[in-house]
Simulated assay, not measured.
Amino acid sequence: MSDPRTPAHAPAHHQLGGHHQHGHQQHAHPVEDDAALAEVLDLDAEVLADHLAAIIYWLPLDAEPRHVLDLGAGTGAGTFALLHRFPTARVTAVDASPGHLLRLREKAHALGLADRVATVQADLDADRWPELGTPDLVWASASMHHMADPGRALRRIRDLLAPHGLFALVELAGFPRFLPADAPADRPGLEERCHAATDHLHAAHVPHRGADWGPLLTAAGLTVTGERTVTVDIAATEHPSVGRYALAGLRRIRTAAAQYLDPADLAALDRLTDADGPGSIALRPDLAARTERQVWAARR
């Protein structure tokens, strides 16, 4: 679940930490950002593993796919869940980030799955896509809303699909929330203010986040055959990685939101994102990972 475009095309607000605006100058730190995003993606996969598996089991497939294409694969959350669900399939994982794809290949080797995974580094906003075969299943999780022209990308997916193939589109309602509404005690509602501070950036640069993809799929020549919403609410007491997930996520949000927060909110956010401090969000027992995923299944 990664931005499927090259780093040069990735907007600063979505990378949440890789770019820092100083007046009219923009300074990029792609290596650090790539690693930080990879950590969030890995934790997302770990915490939401059961929900991801449930989505894949729900897919209205006529037969088990032999070739699966994972668009915007990130560090492999979807890739490995798909390999587990379909033990005879091979997966082609496509992403813009060489660092993410390297991490994915290393995991595949460690799991003994290297012979079933191929990786392709590609910018899916480019005029031409590389040769990606004729997949039975195309999987795109949290990647389509990054496209500069989603309609063009959907038409390309339609043309790629095998005649009997299925396209599975998974999108997020937004970044997960972790804190109770009345937390932290000194700045209640801080998390929502952080999200509000970045919402206008998302609206300007990623306008398709949270869209109803049904009409877009139909316009691209696809027929929607299934749709569902998956609600996630995982307490820190239920999963040991929720605290680390919250810490990594809030650290990335902090950079994007910092210039829009008042000093008291920023100070409170700094206390929450200080991993070694007594106020670290990772130490709170009242955390929960709360979010939604929308899923569409479509055919040619």
Results as ranks from 00 to 15, higher is better:
S2W: 01
P4G: 07
P4T: 03
P7I: 01
A12G: 13
Q26I: 11
L37H: 12
V40R: 14
D42A: 13
A53L: 01
Y57D: 14
W58Y: 06
D62S: 12
V68R: 05
D70L: 12
D70H: 14
A73Q: 08
T75H: 10
G76E: 05
F80Q: 09
A81V: 09
L83P: 00
L83E: 10
H84Q: 14
A89L: 00
V91D: 09
P98H: 10
H109V: 15
A110G: 14
L113Y: 09
Q121W: 02
A122M: 02
R128I: 04
R128H: 10
W129P: 15
L132C: 04
G133L: 13
W139D: 05
D149L: 09
A153W: 02
A162Q: 01
L169A: 06
V170A: 11
L172I: 13
R177P: 00
F178A: 11
P184G: 05
A185C: 00
G189P: 09
C194H: 08
T198S: 11
A203M: 07
A204Y: 03
V206Q: 15
G214A: 14
P215Q: 04
L217Y: 07
L217C: 05
V224I: 12
V224K: 14
T225W: 01
T229L: 13
V232W: 13
I234W: 05
H239V: 07
Y245M: 14
G249P: 06
R251K: 12
R252P: 00
R254S: 03
A267F: 02
A268V: 05
G279R: 01
A289L: 07
R290F: 04
T291Q: 11
Q294V: 03
A297K: 13
A297D: 04
A297R: 13
